[in-house]
Computed example of a mutant assay.
Amino acid sequence: MLLTNTNPLVKGRSRGQDLDLYTWLNARNYSLIHSPSRQTSPITWQQLANQFGNTYGRLDNFIRRFKSSLNNVRMVWPDLNVEIIDGQGIILHRSKRSVTAKRKPTGK
């Protein structure tokens, strides 16, 4: 599903941060799936800005841009379970994977 021509993350309507966020969320979700934890501790806006390279000058500009990227990611990953904590940051909850593995064909 990720590499289709209608996907906004691939079609040219996305920004680099959208793809970075999608990849990061997949990695964090994979960790949650394989741990006893069902969610992360709160991740602050400042931690996210440090993770994604704060080139916005002001944190409120980064937050607005991050939320926009998160909405774009949710378009291709509707089962993504991220809680936005206003004034603080986000909490990631264990989500259904964004893509499913293809079954390998069985031998003849």
Rank of each mutant, 00 (worst) to 15 (best):
L3Y: 06
T4Q: 10
N5F: 10
T6C: 07
N7L: 12
P8H: 05
L9I: 07
L9E: 00
V10F: 05
K11L: 10
K11D: 15
G12Q: 04
G12I: 00
S14Y: 03
R15K: 09
R15T: 06
G16H: 01
Q17T: 10
L19E: 05
D20G: 08
D20C: 13
D20F: 09
L21H: 06
T23V: 12
T23G: 06
W24C: 11
N26D: 08
A27W: 10
R28H: 11
R28D: 09
N29P: 06
N29C: 14
N29A: 14
Y30I: 03
S31D: 14
S31G: 13
S31P: 01
L32N: 04
L32S: 08
H34P: 01
H34Y: 11
H34G: 07
H34N: 15
P36R: 13
P36T: 13
P36Q: 13
S37I: 03
S37Y: 14
Q39N: 11
T40F: 07
T40G: 06
S41Q: 12
I43R: 02
I43W: 02
I43G: 00
T44Y: 00
T44H: 02
W45K: 03
Q46H: 03
Q47L: 05
L48D: 01
L48Q: 00
L48M: 03
N50W: 01
Q51C: 01
F52Q: 02
F52V: 01
F52W: 02
F52Y: 03
N54C: 00
G57P: 05
G57C: 05
R58A: 11
R58P: 06
R58G: 02
D60W: 03
D60A: 11
D60M: 08
N61S: 15
N61Q: 15
N61G: 08
I63F: 04
R64E: 13
S68W: 13
S69L: 08
S69K: 07
N71L: 15
N72M: 12
N72G: 05
V73H: 12
R74T: 12
M75D: 14
W77Y: 06
W77S: 08
P78D: 11
P78K: 12
P78C: 09
D79E: 14
N81A: 12
N81P: 00
V82F: 02
V82G: 04
E83N: 07
I84A: 01
I84S: 05
Q88R: 08
Q88G: 00
I90L: 07
I90W: 00
I91C: 05
I91L: 06
L92N: 02
R94D: 00
R94H: 01
R94C: 07
K96R: 08
K96T: 06
R97D: 03
R97A: 09
R97I: 03
S98F: 11
S98K: 10
V99R: 09
T100A: 08
K102W: 04
K102V: 04
K102F: 01
R103D: 09
K104C: 05
P105Q: 09
P105Y: 02
